[in-house]
């Protein structure tokens, strides 16, 4: 089974973002960019399916293809996936904002060409927190989907996905081909070994453009304003529960 893993280049999760002075977005200049952490989990799961591990027998995945949509530098994000164990990469070069629907359309075009048995995506990217691409892709392809996976078991031609939901665990059984999006507890991604980082350079990356794939990526949405969260106000200590309740009432929150 071929597995596709889309990976997004985002601001490194250790960094704090600064809102641009004109409120049109966040300032990314000169900041370290890394692979979206949920996508790292997706790559790890796919590589385990190929190499064996995490409950998957080796060979569950026959090939792992990492895809990134973004500027030229998104190639570095693909290299990271290749260093973790993906076999090859596809870079769709697109400058500027590419909205979730456009991403899903681009991925559909690649899926049509590649014919994978499974696409594993991060459930959302930590930059815009949209949480849409996996679901939109499933809809465009008319494939079954299981989002927020905390466990994936491939057995008897089916993909059984456990999801953490309110009140417990839910397990879905999907026919292949299918779409799965990863949650935080699915696995703990590896650190790419230094020799594998060196070897990743030799793995192929195909470059494409949205035009090659016949997709119009012009934005459909308009960003009205981006603002910092309101500054925290100083708190107050109370002596009794009665004081607490009175205080909350006075603040108008109960």
């Amino acid at each position: 089974m071929k597995v596709l893993v889309p990976v997004k280049r985002v601001l490194d999760y250790n960094l704090k973002v600064r809102v641009k002075a004109d409120g049109t977005g966040v300032d990314l200049s000169n900041l370290k960019m890394s692979m979206n952490p949920f996508d790292e989990i997706a790559v790890e799961e796919a590589v385990r399916m190929k190499e064996g591990g995490g409950g998957h027998p080796a060979g569950t995945a026959t090939e792992v293809v990492a895809i990134s949509i973004g500027p030229e530098q998104a190639q570095e994000t693909i290299r990271t996936a290749l260093a973790m164990g993906a076999d090859r990469g596809i870079l769709v070069k697109a400058e500027g904002e590419v909205e979730p629907l456009a991403v899903a359309k681009l991925l559909k075009a690649i899926v049509d060409a590649e014919q994978p048995g499974l696409v594993i995506l991060g459930k959302q990217a930590i930059d815009d927190d949209s949480n849409q691409v996996g679901q939109m892709l499933a809809a465009l392809l008319d494939w079954p989907q299981a989002t927020f996976a905390s466990k994936i078991v491939v057995a008897g031609g089916k993909i059984n996905v456990t999801r953490e939901i309110d009140g417990g665990l839910q397990t879905l059984s999907l026919e292949t081909p299918a779409i799965v999006t990863t949650d935080l507890r699915l696995n703990e991604p590896r650190y790419a070994s230094l020799p594998n980082i060196m070897k990743a350079k030799k793995k192929p990356i195909d470059a494409k453009t949205p035009a090659d794939l016949g997709v119009d990526v012009a934005p459909r949405l308009t960003v009205v304003k981006v603002a910092d969260p309101p500054k925290r106000q100083g708190g107050a200590k109370v002596k009794t529960v009665q004081d607490l309740v009175a205080g909350l009432k006075a603040a108008g929150v109960i």
């Binding site: 570095e76 260093a83 990743a200 350079k201």
Partner: peptide, 21 residues
């Protein structure tokens, strides 16, 4: 000697491992 991109990934890999582990 490795190319600049590979070298940058190598250094970033070591830094992350040092910081996180």
């Amino acid at each position: 000697a490795y190319d600049a991109e590979t070298r940058a990934q190598l250094i970033a890999g070591v830094r992350r491992f040092v910081e996180e582990r």
